[in-house]
Write a protein that binds this DNA or RNA. Structure first.
Length: 470
RNA sequence: CGGGAAGUAGCGCAGCUUGGUUAGCGCGCCUGGUUUGGGACCAGGAGGCCGCGGGUUCGAAUCCCGCCUUCCCGACCA
């Protein structure tokens, strides 16, 4: 069996385990400037799959991609009081350019509500122009005091959606649609991460928003990670940027806007939601290669069989990588593929092959099975679907096992040491939030008793989900 | 940004207290060979402005000052 672990075990030091995985799976490196990140090809391939899955859903929700500038006039930020207050500590500001001091400093975008607001104001004239549904894929900069690869870097990649609507109801409904049909659907079906959906308490709200929706996932150490957020911005930005339209009745009306985003943090969430002591465990839908064909040894018959299997997988539309055995011993190569989290290994060796068989191994459970050469493509294609579903179920079981209903703040603090606590929001209150803060815990989100997303934090009988978080 | 720890080969570390030949070890890497069903073995080899800058000294990886970076704990966040 396996020798000494390649990685620091999760139970010994979870943050160290995370760093080990990021390094050993060749996902990312620290950049030369504090907080910056170099995303390596394997990590970027995962991001690209995340990107395309989200992009597809965004387009299905009716939004169109566009691109706005990296540099934003400092004065734009100042127009929305809460927004500038929230972001000013983490802004990178350019004061010099072209060898001269700039008359007005420009900030490197921390998010684009302001520039996009400026252009929405220009483009929207009539109620017929609404809703205006935009999205952009971009990098943003928020100067981080305590960076961690993928989870919190000073520069990160993301998608930010920005929309303008005629009514508050329409804006609110659209934010909810994005939350369910883009984010939660993606998280469940692609990342295989179950979430708690809800709204943020006022203390955790986005700077300038009237309501913030969140998807909270549980990591393998029981901490919460906010995997995506959607914001109802009310008329705050419309007022600041004069985003108005003429109604059917000929009146000038302020728009209601929304914004919503998901970032490279998702890669960190993916690592921590499914990873184990042997490394990354990828759901097939985000794996750069759902399958690796491993030649046990370099041998003519073995390589010929690998080629055949490759052909069959190709025909079945399954992406795969071929490990022809030229690089090191079998055990070494297997360990490497495990660290990288490849969902299925097809091991092709002379012993099995003599009987027309190959060994198929699942990364998530470690389960091995022996199948015939003729059947392997069909079996693997089906197995990938099963793994995708099983990984979601396993993550849900893990989360449910560590989520407890409690009736007092003190019990919540105990439960949130290793998972999530569900406590009536009325019991928490402002003093409760302060008490939680002292324990390094927060209210991650507020939900209705049935798990649905409330309209606002004033609804009666809301449940607060309390946890430690990233 | 506050408190703590640390920076020596790609990675993990020793050497520093008590300054003094050519700065070591393990893993990885390269070459050749034997191997290959869960991190193989033998032989040979390459690779260092000892984080950066300044100072003390005949002499600094080692002592002093400043800065940068990383990790942990807080405050802030996707």
């Amino acid at each position: 069996m396996a020798g000494p672990s390649v990685l620091t075990p999760q139970s010994e030091d979870f943050p160290k385990w995370y760093q080990d995985v990021v390094a050993k799976a060749e996902m990312a490196d620290n950049g030369p400037v504090r907080g910056t990140m170099v995303i390596r090809p394997y990590g970027y391939a995962i991001w690209e799959r995340i990107q395309s899955a989200i992009d597809e859903r965004i387009k299905r929700a009716g939004a169109q991609n566009a691109y706005f500038p990296l540099f934003i006039p400092e004065s734009y930020l100042s127009r929305e009081a809460e927004h500038v207050e929230g972001f000013s500590p983490e802004l990178a500001v350019v004061t010099h350019a072209g060898g001269e001091l700039l008359a007005e400093p420009v900030v490197v975008r921390p998010t684009s509500e302001t520039v996009i607001g400026e252009f929405m104001a220009k483009w929207i004239q009539s109620y017929r122009d609404l809703p205006l549904l935009l999205n952009q894929w971009a990098n943003v900069v928020r100067w981080e005091l305590r960076p961690r690869l993928f989870l919190r870097s000073s520069e990160f990649l993301w998608q930010e959606g920005h929309t303008a609507h005629a009514t508050a109801e329409d804006a609110s409904a659209y934010a909810l649609t994005i939350h369910h049909q883009v984010y939660n659907d993606f998280l469940e079906r692609v990342l295989a991460v179950p979430t708690f959906l809800g709204i943020k308490p006022p203390s955790e709200r986005f700077a300038g928003a009237t309501n913030t929706l969140t998807c909270e996932g549980m990591m393998r150490d029981g901490k919460a990670l906010q995997m995506a957020t959607s914001h109802e911005l009310g008329q705050n930005f419309a007022r600041a940027f004069d985003i108005v339209y003429q109604s059917e009745e000929g009146q000038s009306e302020l728009c209601f806007t929304t914004s919503w985003g998901a970032s490279t943090r998702l890669v960190g969430g993916l690592i921590m939601a499914h990873g184990d002591d042997n490394g990354l465990v990828l759901p097939p839908a985000v794996a750069p290669w759902p399958v690796v064909i491993v030649a046990v040894r370099e041998d003519t018959a073995v390589l010929a069989a690998c080629g055949e299997i490759g052909q069959a997988l190709e025909t079945a539309g399954v992406r795969f990588q071929l490990d022809d055995g030229r690089r090191g011993s079998f055990g070494r190569r297997v360990t490497d593929w495990e660290v990288k989290g490849v969902p299925v290994r097809v091991e092709v060796g002379p012993r099995d092959l003599a009987q027309g068989l190959v060994t198929v191994v699942r990364r998530d459970t470690g389960e091995k099975s022996v199948v015939s050469l003729e059947e392997v493509a069909r079996v693997v294609a089906q197995l990938l679907g099963e793994i995708q579903g099983d990984m979601y179920e396993a993550a849900r079981a893990f989360r449910d096992d560590r989520t407890h209903d409690v009736s007092t703040l003190e019990d919540a603090i105990v439960a949130a040491q290793r998972g999530f606590a569900r406590l009536t929001w009325d019991v928490v209150g402002e003093s409760g939030e302060a008490r939680l803060k002292a324990e390094a815990m927060t209210v991650r989100c507020l939900q209705r008793a049935d798990g649905s997303i409330p309209q606002h934090e004033g609804e009666p009988h809301l449940i607060a989900i309390i946890a430690k978080s990233y």
